[in-house]
């Protein structure tokens, strides 16, 4: 079954089809939210809220083939909301929480939600993640949508409500900054 069939089944009220959609997209959404929000708790919340909203509103999705861009749009809006809330709450810059490692921390006493994802990557991947997190919001947003969610440039544009040309140039710029953050030179710039 592909997305289209699953979405159509979910719209007919088939919860299991929806659950399969959750499983298919959940990890990519989580990585996206994490790279945008920088906190695994917030990312889990954002992904969960996005799925709940999608579940509640799946009737309003007119074109089933547009499920993924539609879902991403919901997620991105949720992330913007979360960033807005956080700015109101914590005006002192952004905190960057390192991804959790395989060990599941005891969280019962703090009332935090269960850690949903463990970081099992390499040192190099941790560096890459940190470099990504150090980019500004717009840059890491386009990279996450493009590479974690595999969206076409046009769909990134729709999700972020900016022109496709802007998406392209922002991706190029973000790749350059990411490379520099990793101590490499920006490959898309022509040396003078």
């Amino acid at each position: 079954m592909d997305d289209l069939q699953l979405v159509e089944a979910a719209r007919r009220g088939n919860d299991r089809a929806f659950a399969v959609l959750v499983r298919l997209h959940e990890r990519a959404l989580y990585c996206t939210a994490f790279s945008i929000l920088g906190s695994s708790w917030d990312a889990s919340d954002a992904v969960q809220d996005a799925f709940l909203e999608a579940y509640a509103r799946i009737d309003t999705l007119r074109d089933a083939s547009r499920f993924k861009p539609w879902l991403v749009r919901i997620l991105v809006n949720g992330c913007y909301d979360a960033l807005g809330r956080r700015r109101r709450l914590v005006p002192v810059g952004e905190t960057v929480e390192p991804p959790a490692t395989g060990e599941r921390p005891a969280r019962a006493s703090t009332g935090q939600p269960e850690e949903a994802h463990a970081f099992i990557g390499t040192e190099a991947q941790l560096d890459l993640f940190r470099a990504l997190r150090a980019l500004d919001e717009g840059d890491r947003m386009v990279l996450a949508l493009r590479y974690f969610l595999d969206l076409k440039v046009g769909d990134v544009a729709t999700a972020l409500d900016i022109p496709a040309g802007t998406v392209k140039s922002r991706i190029n710029r973000a790749l350059g900054r990411l490379a520099q953050g990793l101590g490499r030179h920006a490959p898309l710039e022509v040396a003078q």
């Binding site: 990890r27 990519a28 994802h117 890459l128 974690f148 990411l178 022509v190």
Partner: peptide, 26 residues
């Protein structure tokens, strides 16, 4: 020069795409 830029970009994009798999659902 552009061939090098191409390889470097391809590598970086590949690393980014792989980063998804660094997060294991519990």
């Amino acid at each position: 020069a552009c061939a090098v830029a191409y390889e470097e970009t391809r590598l970086l994009v590949g690393e980014l795409k792989d980063l998804r798999n660094a997060f294991q659902p519990t």
